[in-house]
Design a protein around this nucleic acid. Structure first.
Lengths: 245, 245
DNA sequence: GTCAAGGAAATTGTATACGAAGTTGTGTCG
DNA sequence: CGACACAACTTCGTATACAATTTCCTTGAC
């Protein structure tokens, strides 16, 4: 675990610890509220918790071996993230993130990524450009090694680099938020065949457009890049769950 | 709970929090956590709470006559809304929404509104079209009456109508979130002269573009409409606060 | 037999208490 | 005189207890 986050510097963005948590509940260390949130989030997005199900606070608290207080905090965070609906004096109910809403979220994500790319093409500075090139090179290497897991990780860094390069800290933060929320769903997408190489081709076009300062092309390429992901994911979900509400 | 319309009459300044009589549990209504969040939010955006100031939980709890628990919930919500920064085992510090960040937020807002307009021009259905026309007519009437307060309120409804018409519920929710966050700042803008009539002219162009299904024009007009607001606001703030951090 | 009213059970929301982690001040040693 | 260490205070994070509100079941009346 991270010893401390010394918050060096004035970067205002929340430091998201997106560690792939090995789920160790009641194994020595005490679970923290963040871990509870993450586990509940996983259970919801994987469909382990059915839509409309009520999240009983003390039941969850009992399961994790903690009191109701951290469970409440975790549920509140899930509510503000939009994964559960909070009805006063009634309880927390898991919201079904149906296929339609997922497509909507990808549509918005595409717009924001496109905006970030457009701005980055105009505003990118030398350090950010170096980071973007480095991240892209890492993607190339991962693809050459036929390592989808590595590519997944480096792809994250690639998009983060674009967010950083756009020169709009608020946009970068919002894009990270949405990215984080879609991440759980996108994880299912790893198994789509040939997606990695196709993604890499799109990355090359994006980098090229940013390099020459062509904002319009960067925007269009990034929009398409994200929307394709959304469509692929929609196909995957539709094939997995034949019954759709 | 959104019933109370506190947006109409008041100017920005007076938020009677320090003069708040400590109405303890015997007198009238108990303050709820949502109210605490709202009051703290007001204090922060009005600048009553200086940037970097620490929000002491038990001090706030004492002021509102409640315990630390609802205060914690309120602060957590503010943190997820981005108004305060939460440092583990250190406390909650109010984040300064400096002029630069406000411009960034308006830039994102413009993009989202433009997207909503573009989608609305293609997807708008009859009921939403009727609501949009009604909201626009109300704006026209308010402007004809030279009633800026009424125009402010009807303008809210106008933009809400566009969000509703875009056919993307997630985008509508996100746009509302941003709109809500910028609302407090936008209120300062009422006193800018001639802004109301200029805004109305832009509204007419937006409605016309949506009516004929011209998504590109609707997007461009809405982007410009919001960015102008952001620039006007930046001018206003810059003129009010000559010293910039 | 059905509907309504009232009470009991359950659950959320809030209050208070306690442990943990951090910061600061002071004392001592180099 | 300066630096390091220890202790005490402060404050967050969590646990437990209580109050308020809702829901469901039972009972009584029509």
């Amino acid at each position: 675990m991270e010893r401390n986050a010394k918050l060096a510097g004035e970067t205002v963005g929340p430091v998201e610890t997106d560690a792939e948590t090995p789920r160790r509940r009641s194994a020595g260390g005490r679970v923290k509220s963040g871990q509870i949130r993450e586990m509940l989030e996983q259970e919801i997005v994987t469909g382990e918790r059915l839509a409309g199900e009520r999240l009983d606070e003390q039941a969850v608290a009992l399961r994790f071996g903690v009191s109701r207080t951290p469970v409440r905090e975790a549920i509140n965070q899930l509510a503000s993230a939009g994964l559960v609906e909070l009805i006063p004096n009634r309880g927390a109910f898991v919201r079904e993130t149906g296929l339609a809403e997922l497509v909507e979220m990808f549509e918005v994500m595409a717009e924001m990524e496109g905006m970030a790319g457009r701005l980055a093409a105009r505003r990118i500075a030398a350090p950010a450009r170096a980071r973007l090139q480095a991240a892209h090179l890492a993607c190339e290497n991962a693809a050459a090694r036929e390592a989808p897991d590595d590519y997944y990780y480096e792809n994250e860094r690639f998009h983060q680099a674009i967010y950083d390069a756009c020169g709009n800290g608020f946009l970068a933060a919002e894009a990270r938020r949405l990215h984080q929320r879609l991440k759980a769903f996108r994880r299912l997408q790893l198994r789509v065949p040939h997606r990695m190489h196709q993604s890499l081709v799109e990355h090359r076009r994006i980098v090229a457009a940013i390099e020459v300062g062509d904002g319009a092309t960067a925007e269009a390429e990034l929009k398409s890049h994200i929307m394709v992901q959304g469509e692929r994911f929609a196909d995957l979900v539709a094939s997995l769950t034949p019954k759709v509400s």
